[in-house]
Amino acid sequence: MQAQPQRAVRALHTADTLTVYQAYRPAIGLPAARDGRFPEEWKRDRMTWIKPSFLWMMYRCGWGTKEGQETVLAVEIRRSGFDWALHNACLSHYARGLHTDQASWKRELRRSPARVQWDPERDLRLQPLPYRSLQLGLSGEAAGAYADEWTVSIRDVTPLAHQVHALVSAGDLDAAARLLPEEREYPLADLGHLGGEGPSLTTPR
């Protein structure tokens, strides 16, 4: 089996869009899925974190059982917006070798509309894997653009989360795996400023 890059974006994507996951309380999640856009109650002045990994989202929201995260959404967004956010993002923590010093990293963090964390990817039992998954935090202009310009569709995938969880709990990992979104390595420009790896935008798909 080919080794996975330590830090790369893996996502369900098409030629024009990429799917990310979020989980909300039903008062926000259900109207968002019904109308295909986030409701007024969704605050555009707060940082929002999007996750291309379905299983990392399941780890974060407990398969849609944690309080305030009962509605799991698959948000299909424009690749152009996602790429812009990554290009303008800063790591959420200081990394020696990537930043000149902590002061320069803090200045970059303050002016960046997006920030990136690399967290251990998860398997079907939500155990950590030896490579990392991206979380992308959006604030300011990026959060507003995500909600109002980049979003193509919003689906409620809570039933899928519960179905996969039930199969995992029953020990049928093969059946559970067949239901997972097809997440492939996402072609990107250089992620070096974020400590990432992955194919370039010119890689044939």
Results as ranks from 00 to 15, higher is better:
Thr48Ile: 04
Thr71Trp: 05
Thr100Ala: 14
Arg34Gly: 01
Asp45Tyr: 07
Met58Tyr: 02
Glu76Arg: 15
Ile28Gln: 13
Val116Glu: 03
Thr65Glu: 07
Arg107Met: 11
Gly62Asp: 12
Arg46Ile: 00
Ala103Ser: 10
Lys66Asp: 09
Leu73Cys: 06
Arg107Ser: 12
Arg25Ile: 02
Arg46Ser: 05
Arg96Tyr: 02
Arg111Lys: 14
Thr71Asn: 05
Trp49Val: 15
Arg96Cys: 03
Met57Leu: 14
Arg25Ala: 15
Thr65Arg: 08
Pro31Asn: 12
Arg60Gln: 13
Met58His: 03
Arg25Tyr: 06
Arg110Gly: 01
Phe82Glu: 00
Arg96Lys: 10
Glu40Phe: 01
Gln69Met: 15
Arg46Met: 09
Gln69Ser: 13
Leu55Phe: 10
Leu98Ser: 08
Leu73Ile: 06
Val75Lys: 06
Pro26Asp: 04
Arg37Gln: 13
Phe54Gly: 11
Arg107Ala: 15
Gly68Glu: 04
Ser104Asp: 07
Asp45Met: 02
Glu67Trp: 02
Leu86Val: 06
Ala103Gln: 09
Val75Ala: 04
Gly81Val: 09
Phe82Trp: 09
Asp101Arg: 05
His93Met: 05
Trp49Ala: 13
Met57Glu: 14
Ile28Leu: 14
Leu73Asn: 08
Tyr24Gly: 03
Thr65Pro: 02
Ala27Pro: 00
Thr71Glu: 09
Ala27Ser: 05
Leu98Ala: 06
Tyr94Met: 08
Lys51Pro: 04
Thr48Ser: 12
Pro52Asn: 11
Trp56Gly: 11
Arg115Trp: 11
Trp42Gln: 07
Met47Thr: 10
Pro113Val: 03
Ser104Glu: 11
Gly81Tyr: 10
Ser112Arg: 05
Ser80Gly: 06
Arg111Gly: 06
Leu73Gln: 10
Arg79Ile: 01
Gly68Tyr: 09
Lys106His: 05
Leu55Val: 10
Ala74Phe: 09
Arg107Trp: 01
Leu55Trp: 09
Leu55Cys: 12
Arg79Gln: 13
His87Met: 01
Gly62Asn: 13
Cys61Thr: 04
Arg37His: 12
Leu109Ala: 11
Cys61His: 01
Ser112Asp: 02
Leu86Gln: 07
Gln102Glu: 14
Arg78Trp: 00
Gln69Pro: 08
Ser80Thr: 14
Leu91Thr: 08
Thr48Tyr: 02
Ala89Leu: 00
Ala27His: 01
Cys90Lys: 04
Ser92Cys: 03
Pro113Asn: 00
Tyr59Asp: 14
Ile50Ser: 05
Asp83Ile: 14
Glu41Tyr: 02
Arg60Ile: 05
Asp83Met: 11
Ala89Phe: 08
Lys66Phe: 09
Arg96Pro: 00
Tyr24Ala: 06
Ala32Arg: 04
Thr48Leu: 00
Leu109Ser: 12
Asp45Ile: 01
Cys61Gly: 06
Lys51Cys: 11
Thr71Gly: 07
Thr48Cys: 04
Glu40Trp: 01
